[in-house]
Amino acid sequence: MIWQVELIILILIIICAFAAIKVRDLLSAALLLGAYSFLMCLAWAVMGAVDVAFTEATVGAGVSTVFCVAAVFHTTRRTKD
């Protein structure tokens, strides 16, 4: 639990989340969600929740990004908001 690292990661997480819902390209949104998940995994590893961080690294940053990209591939990439 190093609070400086923790604080920096939390700020980056919030920026990533904000960007993921603001960006006008769905593929970018999916990839930003992956980056968000990976930063979240780092935050949990710093907090000492190793099992949760491991699960998030495999599931959130790995598989769910692939699912999102697959869905965007079969629908559309453009959006109005």
Binding site: A17, I21, A29, L33, D81
Partner: peptide, 12 residues
């Protein structure tokens, strides 16, 4: 407005 954006929001 977009459904994928809503799903991203749900994930967040």
């Amino acid at each position: 407005n977009n459904l994928i954006k809503k799903i991203v929001g749900m994930s967040i």
